[in-house]
Design a protein around this nucleic acid. Structure first.
Lengths: 344, 344
DNA sequence: ATAGTATTTGTAAACTATTGCATATTTTTT
DNA sequence: AAAAAATATGCAATAGTTTACAAATACTAT
């Protein structure tokens, strides 16, 4: 078993209380006592037991982080996680990660059990990236117990909590405005699923820009969010067959854009000469696609950092009176090679 | 403050010990007492404090998981993490995740501090995915304290511990054998960095197959592992200029393969008609590339599951006498569209 | 009725660390 | 030298749970 204060106390013939104070306490301790204790502590490789401290302080310095594990957002998620991790690290805090299955409601029971378990472990708060559908069942315990909680990327309309995400409206707007300024007039939008608030808002931003510029011949289709190639490819093929054919497609997601590439190649359309494509998220594939994908870059790292910061503030109780915050980072259009002027 | 046993005890006029036993203890308790206690516990929404339990039991049901956060392996890493998470969940265990910067030695100090912190939190063990370079400094504390530890994907030669990974030799061999059987005789190998044990072993497997079939005109180049497009594209361009030009390229990594695609397009070589390409890992981009990439599929989920299993066994002390295990999953060649018969 | 057994509950110690209060020791002041 | 003040240490309570052992109660058998 690990070395405890008691072991040091026995070694140096002092009480546990004195040893505790010598190592950390601010009350006066004879200098030579302190030195002796510190020396022995080091010799025995003593490390304070955070469990005991946490019982007393009521803080564990641990937060629960709940993320979806769908492949289609893995590098976005990863970067949010790294942001969270970095910021938590500044406060000597740690993240216990749970991954949730997006489409398997069965697993909700398991997730609820896991959250129970984290509550038992007395995590100080939660950062939650809600999956596609707003199943709040598993959140109810967190709310009932008033455990601090921050939502990331996706908002659940009927839940009051801090939120950090992307200004998706602006992202959709920027993409559309860019295309329109280049002279495109027939633009399609491959939106994500209707259940996803981010996807819906991206489409709204896109449509707002289109309406503002007097475009009416806009095709907007909802689709599955992932890179389910068949679905998206088929949908794109249908769009490309419409008459007049759109000269540009805005996708709610980079993986969807890659499916558009595929459909375009099959239809013998060159990108960007015959068809311009814009993605969303700036994932790794955006750079890897050929031609490199013009896309709307989100700021996942900053989102993570910010979420962690807000959570820590909530935990420390500084802004108890503050009502829920909503922080949205403005995305940035990254211009690469997949957009050109419209043909003819 | 949260509800404790004491609160229930006061409510039902029993001792804390009796309440504890009524809720969990195996010793006999009067049925109506048990029922009453359980009812009140539920009413007060009592949840046992794991911190207190952990102090007594010496187990926290929490393990530290240390992963690199490079983008080039994000979906592989993610799947390993999900595997770990799933298996840990079976045992009501949780993972505290730390991400480490691959190339920033400065950050090692921070990482060491974080590991200290996890030791203070009394994690039961560690699962470590070592970054490119085998900097073991941060591991020393774990070893000194004999905390159970499992390595994932990459082996550190001078450290004794359990290991779970991929049979990279077989992967390299399979890829080469497949190409050779199709008639390719001039094959290049874009290996990963020399510091990466996985990359080296993949190359060895590849070269072994080549040697076995009497191929000698093999180009094998070491490179950066990531998808640093410039580096890999330039390297590929050089390889494609060699005379006679190789008819196939095996890449140690899917992102590298995507760079090969780019170089091939620039050189006006069609895939697979003029050039066959094989990747490694079967990441998401493999399906998204056009033509879809033939690649060697690893089993990240299973690796995660297995690592967690072994760690749990070590923690429970069942195989204290067992010497370090080495488990390697055999990868599988996934045939898609990027490999053809050699031209002419 | 009494002894003996079985069942149920309580007491107290354990785990580890922190902290208010009391005590013992040393130093300073008169 | 005695009193007062300052310093250093110990005691015991606290947090929340578990558990060996003791005590109390109920029940059975003689």
């Amino acid at each position: 078993m690990a070395v405890a204060l008691k072991d040091i106390a026995e070694r140096v013939n002092l009480s546990v209380a004195t040893v505790s104070r010598a190592l950390r306490g601010r009350s006066e301790i004879a200098p030579q006592t302190r030195q002796l204790v510190q020396q022995i502590a080091e010799e025995l490789k003593y490390r304070p037991n955070q469990l005991a401290r946490s019982i007393l302080s009521g803080r564990t310095g641990t937060v629960g982080v709940i993320f979806p594990h769908s492949v289609h957002c893995s590098d976005f998620c990863m970067q949010v996680l790294v942001g969270i991790h970095t910021q938590l690290g500044e406060m000597d805090c740690h993240a216990i990660c749970l991954w949730m299955e997006e489409l398997d409601v069965e697993k909700d029971v398991q997730l609820a059990a896991q959250i129970h378990s984290l509550v038992d472990k007395r995590v100080d708060g939660f950062i939650i990236y809600p999956a596609l559908d707003a199943r709040e069942t598993y959140i109810s315990e967190i709310i009932e117990r008033h455990i601090p909680m921050v939502m990331v990327d996706m908002e659940l309309s009927d839940i009051q909590s801090d939120f950090v995400g992307t200004d998706d409206f602006s992202g959709g707007y920027q993409a559309a405005a860019y295309l329109i300024n280049l002279g495109h007039t027939r633009i399609a939008c491959l939106a994500g699923p209707k259940m996803s608030s981010t996807a819906v808002v991206r489409k709204e931003g896109f449509l707002a820009a289109a309406a503002e510029h007097g475009l009416e011949a806009v095709i907007a289709e909802d689709s599955y969010f992932g890179s389910d190639i068949n679905t998206t490819v088929l949908l794109t093929e249908r769009i490309l067959k419409s008459n007049p054919r759109p000269t540009a497609i805005f996708c709610a997601n980079d993986p969807m854009a890659s499916s558009v590439y595929k459909a375009a190649r099959a239809a013998k359309l060159r990108i960007p000469e015959d068809l311009s494509v814009i993605g969303f998220a700036d994932m790794e594939i955006a750079r890897l696609l050929d031609p490199a994908l013009t896309t709307v870059r989100q700021n996942p790292y900053q989102i993570g950092v910010s979420a962690a910061k807000i959570l820590i503030e909530r935990i420390s109780g500084k802004n108890d009176q503050l009502k829920p915050q909503r922080i949205m980072f403005r995305p940035e259009l990254i211009i690469r090679e997949s957009v050109g002027i419209p043909p003819m």
